[in-house]
């Protein structure tokens, strides 16, 4: 019986399997195996099958979504150790120009340029940003925002690396299906690897640096070395996306340093939810196809796109992924407040 005017609150309970242990899953039945496996296997399997059914335009959209997914994952990884980047296009552009330049001037095949651009891009990123690693929050963000602009204007003004025209007629990746699968595989590997790393002791130290760097230093850990490692990893992921894009479009131009590649990954993370990587991935997978689907609307496209983004952040500030995860992992019941 409830009295009139009494208030209710939601009471949340973890489903049994989650509560059993923090680190060890004692899996007892098929039901529980599926409970754990399906949320991971279903989206992964879906993405892996997708390139078989898509052609032409929508295949390009898939590759594009994976690119943004990689940039969003890279952003989330940096954010997990307290480095807030507004310059994802720096990572993206460095990878794109490394692959493009090596292919255009030295005629190296994509089999070589992709790994070289990935590793080289990561190294250059950590070298460029090492001097500003000591900066926190908005100061670090400002520097990362400036660097891609510096590169873009430098290429524009000096005419190096093709100047404003860019480098065209680069080697393609054998077949469009190959680049689609490289994008999807790279995206999935990065997603699951990041989720694993952040739950290891290595990830624990990274997150501790975000929470309190002085406490980590007093534990005898060189936080600057750890941060430059994180920069290398995040830079490599972004550079891989850029290199893949270069060969997919067989072109690289100064637009790879554009603000879109810096801001949209942040928007994807804001939509999907920060800190879990799955949120960043999901955000990118929603945002990119959505923006393409809205093309039919013509002029109002960007306005509607922005409205959807604002609404989702207002209604689900925790992020779409965290909302879904909560619904999946927990029972909710209404309890009367006395």
């Amino acid at each position: 019986m409830t009295e009139p005017g009494s208030k209710f609150r939601k009471k949340r309970l973890d489903r049994g399997i989650k509560a059993r242990a923090d680190t060890i899953f004692a899996v007892a039945s098929w039901r529980e195996i599926l409970y754990l496996l399906l949320p991971r296997a279903l989206p992964a399997g879906f993405l892996l099958l997708l390139p078989l059914f898509l052609d032409g335009y929508w295949e390009k959209v898939l590759v594009y979504a994976c690119m943004f997914g990689l940039l969003a994952l890279s952003w989330d990884f940096l954010a997990s150790c307290g480095l807030f980047s507004l310059g994802q296009s720096l990572f993206f552009g460095l990878g794109a120009y490394l692959a493009g330049g090596l292919n255009y001037y030295l005629h190296w095949p994509p089999v070589v340029t992709l790994p070289v651009a990935t590793i080289g891009g990561g190294l250059i990123c950590s070298a460029l940003l090492s001097p500003v690693m000591r900066l926190r929050g908005v100061y670090f963000a400002m520097v990362t925002l400036m660097l891609p602009i510096l590169f873009m204007k430098g290429i524009e003004a000096t005419g190096l690396l093709g100047g404003t025209h860019g480098l065209s007629a680069l080697s393609p990746l054998v077949h469009d299906k190959v680049s689609a699968y490289l994008a999807v595989l790279g995206f999935l590997v990065c997603l699951f690897a990041f989720r694993r790393v952040i739950n290891s002791d290595y990830g624990l130290v990274l997150m501790a640096i975000r929470d309190d760097d002085r406490a980590v230093m007093s534990g005898g850990i060189n936080i600057y070395w750890r941060k430059s490692q994180a920069l290398f990893i995040a830079g490599s992921v972004g550079a891989f996306a850029g290199a893949l894009m270069t060969h997919h479009y067989q072109f690289v131009g100064k637009s790879v340093f554009a603000l879109d590649y810096s801001i949209l990954p942040v928007a994807a993370v804001a939509l999907g939810g920060q800190g879990s990587f799955a949120g960043a991935a999901l955000g990118a997978m929603i945002l990119v196809p959505l923006s393409e689907a809205l093309r039919a609307l013509g002029g109002l496209r960007i306005a509607i796109y922005c409205s959807i983004l604002i609404l989702s952040i207002l209604t689900l500030p925790e992020g779409v992924f965290h909302y879904m995860e909560r619904k999946y992992q927990q029972f909710e019941t209404k309890v009367e407040v006395r």
Partner: peptide
């Protein structure tokens, strides 16, 4: 987990 952080140091 708080105690694990110094355990990750090169000294340990």
């Amino acid at each position: 987990k708080n105690v694990i952080i110094p355990l990750c140091s090169p000294r340990v």
